[in-house]
Design a protein around this nucleic acid. Structure first.
Lengths: 146, 146
DNA sequence: GTGCTTGCAAACAGTTTGCAGATAG
DNA sequence: CTATCTGCAAACTGTTTGCAAGCAC
């Protein structure tokens, strides 16, 4: 989240370029995504959007998130046992730490070793196109609460 | 899957030790898990179990898988957009390659760099307890089918 | 004005739960 | 004999879909 305003404008321009309609709901959602660094869930975004648009529905949130995902402007972190989470600031694969207590998610500033990807490709014969690295642990706040 | 028979016996002994009942369904499921290296889904296991026990239900499969998961004898790979997959041979975190076409999953024989985990802990303040690394790509078979 | 988008409700899929009857120990 | 386990069915949850009405362009 270097500059929320700049990121917001990037998102808006992307939709404009592709001739998607800039509805107030979409614009507000993009503003939220650009200003979030907590990897919000759809329902979190829904709660926040409803403050501005009381009739907003979850369907609209999901449709917009999927649109942005298809445009490679949002990274979706899927969880089988919890709400998916969305990152509108760094829509490319990068490692995360996830608190197993409070479900806080933070970015990690470490790169995926490039030679690990190469070795994996060699070993498996796969053409690697993407990846995901999640570290699970207990965040500082939850350690204090112990 | 070094030795399916040995692994099978390990699983059986684990249940016996903890005084869980060794029902025929559980035994058969453990045999399947010990002999699988394809990271089967619950529904795959269900299909195979039904050959031996035509009245088996998905509920029983899930209950047994969750039991083994709680005993740290099965690793669950959860997917928000697909069936979860289960590994009864290496129930500890290890990297996988996943084919985005056919959903084949293979183990990778590369270790998670230990210093990456340490750096992550330092950077985030988290106590890291576990992790997951998935590489997504196209498997050799699906490349050939192109 | 046109057709994309919204909001609502119903559908969906995988997993979990509740309970009565069956069975391992 | 008894507590655990099975099988069935219903419930659950997060997400997707269908459609009529609304609105961006």
């Amino acid at each position: 989240m270097a500059d929320p305003q700049a990121r917001f404008e990037e998102l808006v321009n992307k939709l404009r370029e592709r001739e998607y309609r800039l509805t107030p709901q979409r614009v507000a959602l993009m503003r939220l995504l650009a200003a979030s660094d907590g990897h919000p869930s759809a329902s979190h975004l829904y709660d926040r959007l409803q403050e501005q648009f009381p009739t907003t529905s979850p369907g609209t949130i999901y449709k917009t998130l999927n649109l942005l995902k298809d445009l490679d402007e949002v990274l979706e972190l899927g969880f089988s046992d919890d709400d998916n989470r969305y990152d509108g600031n760094k829509p490319y694969p990068h490692p995360h730490v996830i608190c197993v207590r409070c479900r806080k998610i933070m970015d990690l500033e470490v790169g995926m070793a490039q030679n690990l990807l190469q070795e994996a490709a060699q070993q498996s014969g796969f053409q690697i196109v993407s990846h995901r690295l999640d570290l699970y642990g207990i965040c500082p706040d939850c350690q204090d609460r112990e």
